[in-house]
Simulated scan of single mutants.
Amino acid sequence: MSNDFETAVKQEEAYLRKVHPTPDDIPGCMTLFDDFLSCNIVGKQLTSIYRYGHMSVCGPKLAEFKFCMSLKGLHPEEKREAWIRRRAEWWARRRLEKSSEDVWDIRTEPLKDFPPARPYLPDDNSPALE
Rank of each mutant, 00 (worst) to 15 (best):
R80C: 00
E64N: 15
W83E: 02
F65S: 02
T22L: 07
D35I: 02
W91D: 12
K18Q: 13
K61Q: 14
S48N: 13
D34Q: 08
S56F: 00
V103D: 11
P76K: 03
S99T: 15
R17H: 11
C39W: 11
S70E: 12
V42M: 13
P60Y: 04
L46T: 10
K66S: 10
G73S: 12
E97V: 08
D105Q: 10
I106F: 10
T108C: 07
P110W: 06
P76M: 02
R107P: 06
H20T: 01
A63S: 12
T31S: 12
V103Y: 06
K18V: 01
E78L: 14
C58Y: 07
S99N: 07
T31V: 08
R51E: 15
D102K: 02
F33P: 00
I106Q: 13
I49V: 10
F36R: 01
M69K: 15
A88Q: 09
V57A: 07
L71V: 05
L16A: 02
Q45S: 02
C68T: 05
I84L: 08
K66W: 04
V9E: 08
S38C: 05
S99P: 01
S70K: 11
K18A: 04
V42L: 13
T108R: 12
K44G: 15
L16N: 05
P21T: 01
L96S: 01
F67L: 09
C29Q: 07
K79C: 06
